[in-house]
Design a protein around this nucleic acid. Structure first.
Lengths: 194, 194
DNA sequence: CCTATCATGTAATCCGTTACATGATTAT
DNA sequence: ATAATCATGTAACGGATTACATGATAGG
């Protein structure tokens, strides 16, 4: 039995197809990029390979277009729907992962001058302002039916987060923490090396 | 020699050693788990294998303990310090990635009943409240020198985020969006595509 | 001393990323 | 028509996760 575990990518594909109907990988890519992909990026190659895996597991069914590009269009099978429902009801393990390289830099204290930290934080705030604007733009393009309330809610959290990030980095810029000094004054090179 | 690119994990290891001095993988694990690991988890095996890679690249130097467990203790080399400084000054690409399975579930609208959504959101809020408490606790254990201002600042963002998440999920619980109905798999809406 | 448990370390697998390859559409 | 560009798809590599293996410490 193929007991390959389903990943978040799997559920993204299954759930998106459930929501939007039978889709080609490219359509998935479009849908994802303009919504949840803003804060959870899925490389487009995943959206081509993952449906194939899910088809092998019997959770999707594939249909080839006859004309033109002969695209693969993937349909949700009853087993796929069941997998989604099962996932919906099982516990949600793991904590929120917030991966941000800028935050990592700040955390590690790698900036060596206070002014560097200030300039860096200013730049980060700018970036997040841009991202916030993008969210607002994409909010305007969402279809308006009540059946799109969940995507809207998720996008809302994204916007809140960006607003928070802007505020955070602005405060850091206004009052930059002192850089972290190295624990060791100067590490000597390894013996027998230049 | 160095063909492989440095990953966030690499900089985490380099930066942590720079901050805390020569460390064993287990010490890295402890340091990371109680700080940034709260919102950017690094499996402990990474903290054993990554230093080996960095040593091969000449960015760390390894010393074996003679007694007992013969632990490996890794020291930052001048090349490692240079790598960190270079990273500090180069641009910070990519957007903040916020990965949250609960949010994914909400986004995909997989809950089939409004009450399910409500209960789910309530549970999520609870989880984030717990996480917020953990942050506060770990804040208390941080050393107090001004040289630890950066870790504190980063942790501060983590706490803000959790507070935001609590508020968000409470609002969802108070006013749950309608579940997303499955799209009709009967016929694709645009048959004559191009 | 013996056993249970936790600290420490490693091996193998698989997903995700990067990079490239091919075919279709559009503009001129 | 033909070249340029974009859509579409695949292959290969490497890092991250899972699971297991070994050694040390504590307690009875």
């Amino acid at each position: 039995m193929s007991k390959s575990k389903l990943t978040p990518t799997s559920y993204l594909v299954l759930g998106t197809i459930r929501m939007s109907g039978p889709s080609t990988p490219y359509e998935l890519k479009q849908l994802v990029n303009h919504s949840i992909g803003h804060f959870w990026s899925f490389p487009h190659s995943q959206l081509y390979t993952e449906p194939a895996r899910l088809t092998a597991l019997g959770l999707l069914r594939e249909e080839r277009e006859e004309s033109g590009r002969r695209r693969r269009r993937f349909h949700l099978t009853p087993a796929g729907e069941a997998a989604l429902e099962h996932w919906a009801q099982e516990p949600t393990p793991g904590r929120t992962q917030a991966h941000d390289l800028g935050l990592l830099k700040l955390f590690l204290g790698v900036m060596t001058e206070r002014d560097d930290v200030r300039a860096f934080a200013f730049h980060q705030a700018q970036d997040h302002r841009r991202q916030l604007d993008e969210y607002r733009a994409s909010e305007g393009t969402l279809p308006e039916g009540p059946d799109r309330a969940s995507p809207r809610a998720a996008l809302g959290l994204g916007m809140r987060f960006e607003q928070l990030a802007v505020t955070f980095w602005e405060e850091v810029a206004a009052n930059p923490p002192a850089p972290v000094p190295p624990a060791q004054p100067a590490a000597p090179p390894a013996p027998g090396n230049a």
